[in-house]
Write a protein that binds this DNA or RNA. Structure first.
Length: 415
RNA sequence: GCCUGGAUAGGGUAGAGGUUAUCCUCUGGGACUGUGGAUCCCAGGAGCCGGGUUCGAAUCCCGGUCCAGGCCCCA
């Protein structure tokens, strides 16, 4: 009986993993260059952690289960809540701000489609403890640098949920939240219908629509403040920093979040091509969550990158390490020993474990793209010189062990 | 939860209610017991699962599973 992979999961072969590692390495390198330290949290948490953050409704989109003692647990569907829990549990007296990053698999029980899986990876950062525009600027620039370094063609949209919240402040909370969700989805028809349904004044509807239509450089802040009277100072200061860092962005006040704990700046990045309906590759913003998990009411800013979507459109990878195949003719033990010595010098070496003919061993070396083959047989043992065969040119030569190493050094196989 | 299209060896495919399911690739071995890539030979390996129609189903019908894509959702 053949057992298939569970729905929405993937297997990764070495080529794919090398690519993913290369991308991951860039992300780590940049996050660390900003002074962020890596953290890890459990793959499963108490279900309550996620329902507290996002509401009971998410249970149907989560891998939730009871353990043998009846505890309600869930595979993590994202990392922001676990990181905040970790902060409240372990870090509440550490010097502020805290700078953390993570790279982790997450699980959601959803219908798979392009760029969307039931097990997927997120790379993200959280900057905990600051409510300054400088924190937003840092996190946005960190995301921007990563996407840039990966050579992606993307658009960065920045908004501020406070503007719409302020405009809708006289509506009941529930209605305002629904409006935010419709705007988040960019469902203008639905929004028109809903505003009509709840009997919102035309004047309010007009202002909502003109506000979410605003999109462009920082000058739209001025236009926005004519529609809704709000203080643009915070956003102006943020733009000042981003401009000085030469970050390209679009101010889009229709970039919002449906959830209450987003308090200020929100941002998203979209891939310009290569992905279908699921083209958002980054989402972030500033939020207040710690107090929901029993900590102090503190502001944080963070983002998460959709690692799998990025891997799909990014062509970065690292080349395979050159390989030496040690072939033997009746001297398998000596071949193992030689391979072992080569490995100690940083060379990747493989030996024959199929007990095949020399011909087949070389054929295999060719199949796995070995750069060189070294032959160990009666002649080599008697003369103390190994036969080195260059698999590209086909030439071979006789070398002692030290000469062999020198040759590999000069060919760049080892330091 | 909804819609569309799919599923034949590890990968890619052909055919089609009726003898032993086609071809390419692949894997193992050999021709060739001290030198890879070529060629030839031999071997291996398949109709998603369950039910129905039928003398007979991989083929037709129903249900399920899974895949691709689109909705819903997207923390």
């Amino acid at each position: 009986m053949k057992i298939e992979r569970p729905r929405g999961t993937r297997d990764f072969l070495p080529d794919e993993i090398r690519k993913r590692r290369a991308i991951e390495t860039v992300m780590r390198k940049i996050a660390e260059s900003y002074g962020y330290g890596e953290i890890a949290t459990p793959v499963f948490e108490h279900l309550e952690l996620f329902t507290t953050k996002s509401g009971e409704g998410i249970v149907k989109e989560i891998y939730a289960f009871r353990d043998k003692s009846g505890r309600e647990l869930a595979l993590r569907p994202e990392l922001t809540a676990p990181v905040m829990r970790l902060f409240v549990n372990e870090c509440s007296v550490m010097p502020r701000p805290l700078r953390f990053y993570y790279f982790a698999n997450c699980f959601r029980y959803e219908r798979p489609q392009k760029g969307r899986y039931r097990e997927f990876w997120q790379f993200g950062v959280e900057l905990i403890g600051s409510s300054s525009h400088l924190a937003d600027a840092e996190v946005i620039s960190l995301a921007y640098r990563i996407l840039n370094e990966l050579g992606l063609d993307f658009e960065l949209h920045i908004g501020h949920v406070g503007v719409l919240r302020y405009l809708l402040r006289h509506l009941e909370e529930e209605k305002a939240a629904k409006i935010m969700r419709l705007i988040d989805k960019r469902d203008t028809d639905g929004l028109t219908v809903y505003l009509d349904e709840i009997g919102a004044p035309h004047e309010l509807a007009d202002r909502v629509f003109s506000l979410i239509d605003l999109s462009g450089g920082r000058e739209v802040l001025g236009d926005a403040s004519k529609i809704v009277k709000f203080d643009t100072t915070y956003m102006e200061k943020l733009c000042d920093v981003l401009d000085s860092l030469e970050i390209n962005y679009t101010i889009n006040l229709g970039t919002v979040r449906g959830l209450d704990y987003y308090t200020g700046v929100v941002f998203e990045a979209y891939a310009k091509h290569g992905l279908g309906a699921e083209k958002q590759i980054c989402g972030g913003g500033s939020y207040r969550l710690a107090h929901l998990f029993g900590g102090e009411d503190i502001q944080s800013t963070g983002f998460a990158l959709g690692f799998d979507r990025i891997a799909e459109i990014c062509d970065l990878t690292t080349p395979e390490k050159p390989l030496v195949a040690v072939a033997s003719i009746g001297f398998e033990k000596e071949a193992c020993k030689l391979a072992d010595s080569l490995r100690r010098h940083g060379i990747c070496a493989v030996t024959d474990v199929m007990e095949r003919s020399l011909k087949r061993q070389l054929s295999f070396a060719n199949d796995v793209n070995a750069r060189f083959a070294v032959i160990v047989g009666k002649r080599e043992i008697e003369s103390g010189k190994y036969t080195l065969k260059d698999m590209e040119t086909g030439e071979s030569m006789q070398l002692e062990f030290e000469e062999l190493l020198d040759y590999f050094r000069s060919s760049g196989l080892c330091p």
